[in-house]
Design a protein around this nucleic acid. Sequence first.
DNA 1: GTGAAAGCGCTAACAA
DNA 2: TTGTTAGCGCTTTCAC
Lengths: 339, 339
Amino acid sequence: MAATLHDVARLAGVSIKTVSNVVNDSAPVREQTRARVLAAISQLDYRPNLTARSLRSGTTGVIGLAVPELRLSYFAELADSVMKAAEKRGLTVLIEQTNGDRERELEMLRSPSRRFTDGLIFSVLGMGNEDAEFLRVDYPLVILGERVFHGPADHVTMRNVEAARAATEHLLGLGRRRIAVIGAHEGEIIGSAGLRFAGYREALDAASVPFDPRLVGYTTLWHRSNGAEAMRALLDSGVEFDAVFAFNDTLALGAMRVIQEAGLVVPRDVAVMGFDNLDETAYSIPTLSTVDPGREEIAERAVEVLQERIRERSRNGASLAAPREIETAFRIVGRESTV
Amino acid sequence: MAATLHDVARLAGVSIKTVSNVVNDSAPVREQTRARVLAAISQLDYRPNLTARSLRSGTTGVIGLAVPELRLSYFAELADSVMKAAEKRGLTVLIEQTNGDRERELEMLRSPSRRFTDGLIFSVLGMGNEDAEFLRVDYPLVILGERVFHGPADHVTMRNVEAARAATEHLLGLGRRRIAVIGAHEGEIIGSAGLRFAGYREALDAASVPFDPRLVGYTTLWHRSNGAEAMRALLDSGVEFDAVFAFNDTLALGAMRVIQEAGLVVPRDVAVMGFDNLDETAYSIPTLSTVDPGREEIAERAVEVLQERIRERSRNGASLAAPREIETAFRIVGRESTV
DNA sequence: GTGAAAGCGCTAACAA
DNA sequence: TTGTTAGCGCTTTCAC
């Protein structure tokens, strides 16, 4: 059985309070006593029981991270960044998957594991702005993504409209004028698809390039196969285009595959631009130009804000500060697909 | 403040024991009483404090999963499978990253979060058989991977030698006789590289195809860039080959890129075979033939064995049963790269 | 500088 | 069938 404070105290011939003081540096301890305690600790290989500590202190040092699916590279890379940011701050991350499903997302907010975590970083995909009130919860919560804005919880996101505009301008800068988009969602205003589409339109308008609805590829999901299908439809339709802006890298890679199968050359015949800067975009054939959404910064800020809220809460019982909207920086990454 | 058992008991006019019985189904409760308790629970939105329950019961319902790096697709997909298998059994997964680093792996075995988890599934990459004794720990532990065999902990792995042999035979079956390998590790006997190399040799020998050391591409890591480099070296060396067996999919994808850049056609000039059956191998150009290692089954078995050990332990204090070596089934997946 | 004791919320042994 | 009570291991007043 693992050693407890009592065992250490008995061996060192002191009270458990003294041992606790040594372990937590919570009060000055005479040098000689400290040495005796430390000796006992190492002799017994004592390690504090975190569960007991949690019960007493009310915090666990664990934060939750809810993402749609870990096997989607974007979320695996995000999880990696969040774990690294958390580790720097002495926090452990408990990852959970929602499948991007509205119902499961709502459940997640009330999952039993919330009792195990001090707060939650929640990458929302299925819920919409109309669900915002569900985000009014009694624990620290930081929302990620583009589904809910100005809700009752802190929110970290990138400038989607500006980034999509910059991506489109990058293509315009190459002299491309017939720029198709892939990944649009009919009638969506907010959400990544809606915002990125808006950025695309802004760029066209600013450059006085007419918008052609035949160049819009709608897809429900943003997987590789959806990018491939949308591109096939575009090619079959016979509409002319000299560039494609896909709303994420996975769509772009799927589309690029179909373009090449059709005997066209990237970027000579069609320039391709993605969005997310996944690791693998640096290794595709050709390498894929994309938007770096600054995942590291998003993760850092999210963990930072969450930790602040956790601290506020443990001091004051609850935080009254207004929810924060934090926007992070992006960067256009030019690679072979848009030379 | 969140409601406790006491609050519910007071509201329902019963003792906390009765509430506890209702919550845990631990003893029969009169229908009428149960209804009153349930009403109080929902009125107060009572949810049990898992920390307190853990302190009392000595278990947490959380298992650890240590993997090298989540951004490597193989481990993201493995993590997904483990989480799904765990969820079926009512367990939550705490993921931690080791970076495949021996030192960090050793630390992981004694990480403070072990106090938070009932057991650990540990995908080992940096440690070797000589470190096996470190795996003699006082909590349930299941090892994954090919670095440690017959150690003091349970071990779930696939038949690497047989799988690599089958993959090579698949290429031989196409009439290819000059089969290069990529990802070999000089002098390694166990470890994925050593075992897969052995399987390759077995297949050649069985088919009486002479082994040519010039066809062996050594790489330290198994990333895309390593596959690309190894293939470049192979092409530069001028040695002839009509097929490549890469020891994982990522290497294969990197190699395939270089093959195509060199103006060769896959599979006409060079057939390519990977290993792992990553999601993305179904979408590459051409799609990649590979070995499906049965990640789902590995995950299922690992969680199952771990849970058994956890239960044994909570019953008997400790498990005396000998460590188990479990081997799972694999499957050759033929795709465009080996038509 | 150190000790005694209460109690975090829960489960389980024992009583009634 | 239900209630009482003793801890799980720790932190934290409050004495000394």
